[in-house]
């Protein structure tokens, strides 16, 4: 049986791990490669590296990091953050990334999704969508959730699937950093309407939140950062708890 995935997310700045609380107030939490190996050993199913550096050398720094991770880690990982061209993706995949995630660049140029899918295949193209509710409507946001757009979440998700993306990583900006649980109602609608896997992100605070997002949110995978980074829960314990609640996991 296909299992539900637990995915720690490592925010990366200049080759180091950080975590944003509502995407600001960064805190340093260690070496990405070491952290990645630790998570892999603890039973993480996948890893996501989200690069938030803004330096000119960022592309090279990220490619080097990807290579170091690929050398050491025996589970799949996705790289995202500032990816905007075929060339960017080519370099990351060539260095050993399994998937890339694109966000703002896909909103600005949706055709990029088709081009990447044609060149590299659906299986390695994740489209990340950040959204929050404005007057009761879910609107897509750009630049790490800072810039609102007029684009409606569910329509964009449909377009993303039609253009060939292999997966959607949905972050609710209303939930991210709150530790009050995932946006399950919205996730359930995304997961029911779309026929590609949906990764839930934003709001993980305790184990029940993960149970809820798999049961009520119908998520295929759940992503979290700080609860794992700061050892608020161990991945092994979380997966045992999920199994006890009838959710298929890899133990």
């Amino acid at each position: 049986m296909l299992t539900k995935r637990i995915i720690p997310c490592l925010d990366i700045k200049d080759g180091r791990t950080v975590k944003g609380i509502n995407f600001v107030d960064l805190r340093d939490a260690g070496d990405p490669v070491e952290l990645a190996q630790m998570y892999a050993n603890e039973g993480a199913d996948e890893l996501v590296f989200l690069d938030i550096s803004a330096t000119e050398e960022r592309r090279k720094t990220l490619a080097d990091l990807v290579k170091r991770v690929a050398e050491k880690v025996n589970i799949p990982f996705t790289v995202g953050g500032g990816i905007s061209s075929i060339k960017d993706v080519d370099v990351l995949l060539h260095n050993g990334a399994d998937k890339v995630s694109i966000n703002s660049s896909a909103v600005k140029n949706p055709e990029l999704i088709n081009e990447l899918v044609a060149k590299f295949g659906s299986q390695c193209i994740v489209v990340a969508i950040d959204a929050k509710q404005i007057n009761g409507e879910w609107k897509v946001h750009l630049v790490g959730g800072k810039v609102p757009t007029e684009i409606e979440l569910f329509e964009w998700a449909k377009e993303v699937e039609e253009r060939g993306a292999g997966e959607i990583l949905f972050t609710s900006m209303d939930h991210d950093g709150t530790k009050n649980g995932f946006a399950n109602e919205t996730l359930a609608r995304l997961s029911t309407e779309r026929n590609i896997p949906i990764i839930a992100s934003g709001g993980a605070g305790n184990m029940q939140h993960f149970i809820d997002t798999f049961k009520d949110g119908k998520a295929d995978a759940a992503l979290a950062a700080s609860v794992f980074h700061f050892k608020e829960m161990e991945i092994k314990d979380l997966k045992k708890k999920l199994q006890d609640n009838g959710i298929p996991v890899r133990l």
Binding site: M1, L2, T3, K4, R5, D45, E46, S122, Q123, G166, E167, N195, I196, P197, D220, A221, R250
Partner: peptide, 13 residues
Amino acid sequence: TNRVKVPQIGWNQ
């Protein structure tokens, strides 16, 4: 078929 999500992504047995 579209009775399941495609692609299948993740850990199976």
